[in-house]
Design a protein around this nucleic acid. Structure first.
Length: 462
RNA sequence: GGUACUCUGGCAGAACGGUUAUGCGUGAGCCUGCAAAGCUUAUACAAGGGGGUUCGACUCCCUCGGGUACCUCCA
């Protein structure tokens, strides 16, 4: 599998001969997660599910930034402790992402639970003469890391000339960034330099190295993290260990609205709660995977609607297979095998989810075609069923299981309706159909038989 | 201003130096008691502008231009 690496600007092979270690920069837990977070996290969710499906062991670490000015500000506004705020939004995070069918990471380390590791990390940088304490905190000396700017392709002197006026005159260089901020106000921890809290970037260096080692396979996040966050992570980590940090830097494009990045100041943020409520998890996932991960994707009702239609096709396909029992069925194993290869090839080639979806839908279409032609048998569909299920699991698309009781009830009603139709009591038949519709059950009348399917309820429909 | 990314048919969106997918939409039809869903078929002579390399470029190079992001916190 090849992934486009931001650092080398070239495709790099992921070493799948052993456990693959992935670190993803998670969220700062001071507010609700939005569709932009969802995209990044869904992309990595599919990546790890795909690799796991191939039988590769994955160690997937995603942090929570639970100490930060924003959290503290929010706590002050709401007259709560920072801990209360971060706990609340971590819970909120899991509600949202469980709802999006995202598999839990191997571990979700929190900054506040790794203060010791962070302090040790900073001490090491001071020992090496790369960081220095001032009366405000400890700073990383950018000039001591000659490769600074290699990820974001920025030149140090250009950054300096563009740098805004710094309040902190203790810093040796305006570009130097905080590793430890001295403070008296909670939340604070003791350190060799006095009470305070860690800077933003250091936690990811400390925690990724702690859990994944000095050089791991993939480090990911949104594109907006390239500078300064990931640039600083590289500077800290490589200064500390003296060796290459992450092997591949994989960055996910922004979700935009009307071509603009979502941001609080513009007020165009779509929360995951809002989007799930209206569209449900499957359509959101299809939407997030519909373009190449590295490119921006524009959020619009129109696109979600398109994915709604596609999702209905998937549901139809699933239930057509579920009910398949035609006598003269066609064998499509060869076709399926071919398309499956395309699916995998697409993902192996810089994780092209759009192409993979395209392959997936080719099978969906083929199944629905056969169903329409009454050529879908029970015998010949084992392979398709298996492969579609595999793809759905990788993509994280879910269709609910139905209990036997419900099935029986549905079947009873269908038989009643058939009887009414035979007797040309169409009003009665339609009543039964309406009743089923209210239960989100849709009937499909084929020539010889009527089948049912359970439609996911989509609030935004109509 | 610097850096990065980007510019493909009505919309979305890939691949490839030589047939440009796929989906949505739209038209027609099939199926149906009517629907819905689904299916079939038709439909786009599309690549920001201009150069160049080539027998041939959407794909490579140059140049001009538009857009977005980052350069402060941000998935």
């Amino acid at each position: 599998m090849k992934i486009q690496d931001t650092l080398t600007k070239s495709e790099q092979e992921v070493d799948i001969s052993k456990k693959v270690k992935i670190y993803l920069c998670g969220v700062t837990v001071y507010d609700e997660s939005h569709i932009g977070h969802a995209r990044t996290i869904i992309v990595f969710d599919v990546l790890r599910k795909y690799l796991e499906d191939k039988g590769i062991e994955i160690e997937f670490i995603q942090n929570f930034t639970d100490v930060d000015d924003k959290i503290i500000n929010r706590a002050n506004e709401e007259n709560k402790t920072a801990g209360e705020i971060s706990t609340k939004y971590i819970e909120n995070y899991f509600e949202d992402f469980d709802g999006l069918n995202v598999k839990r990471a191997t571990n979700y380390p929190k900054a506040t639970e790794h203060i010791e590791d962070i302090i040790k990390f900073i001490e090491k940088l001071i020992e090496k003469g790369i960081a220095y304490p001032t009366k405000n905190g400890v700073y990383f000396s950018v000039s001591k890391f000659p490769d600074y700017g290699k990820l974001s392709k920025k030149k140090i002197d250009e950054l300096q000339s563009g740098a805004r006026i710094e309040v902190d005159e203790e810093k040796k260089d305006p570009l130097d960034f905080a590793l430890w901020k001295l403070s008296d106000k909670e939340p604070v921890w003791d350190s060799p330099w006095g009470k305070g809290r860690p800077g933003w970037h250091i936690e990811c260096s400390a925690m990724s190295i702690k859990y994944l080692g000095e050089n791991f396979d993939i480090h990911g996040g949104g594109r907006d993290l390239i500078f300064p966050h990931h640039e600083n992570e590289i500077a800290q980590s490589e200064s500390c260990t003296g060796s290459q940090f992450a092997k591949i830097w994989m960055h996910v494009g922004m979700v935009t609205i009307d071509g603009e990045k979502m941001s609080k100041s513009i007020g165009n943020v779509k929360s995951i709660k809002h989007v799930i409520e209206n569209w449900g998890p499957n359509i959101i996932r299809l939407f997030c995977l519909s373009g190449h991960y590295s490119k921006p994707i524009d959020y619009s009702e129109e696109l979600l609607k398109e994915n709604l239609i596609k999702w209905r096709q998937v549901e139809t396909c699933h239930y057509e297979l579920f009910h398949a029992n035609n006598e003269n069925s066609e064998n499509i194993d060869e076709f399926v095998a071919k398309i499956c290869t395309e699916f995998d090839r697409a993902l192996d080639n810089d994780f092209n989810t759009h192409m993979a979806l395209s392959a997936f839908f080719q099978i969906v279409k083929e199944v629905n075609r056969l169903a329409a032609e009454e050529k879908l048998g029970n015998e010949n569909t084992k392979t398709v069923k298996k492969e579609l299920k595999r793809m759905r699991e990788i993509l994280g698309l879910t269709i609910p299981e139905i209990t036997e009781n419900v099935k029986d009830e549905i079947n009873k009603l269908i038989i009643q309706r058939e009887q009414s139709r035979k007797e040309k009591q169409f009003e009665e038949a339609d009543k039964i159909r309406d009743k089923l519709n209210e239960m989100n059950i849709e009937l499909i009348d084929h020539k010889g038989k009527t089948i049912w399917m359970i439609k996911e309820k989509i609030k935004a429909e109509k």
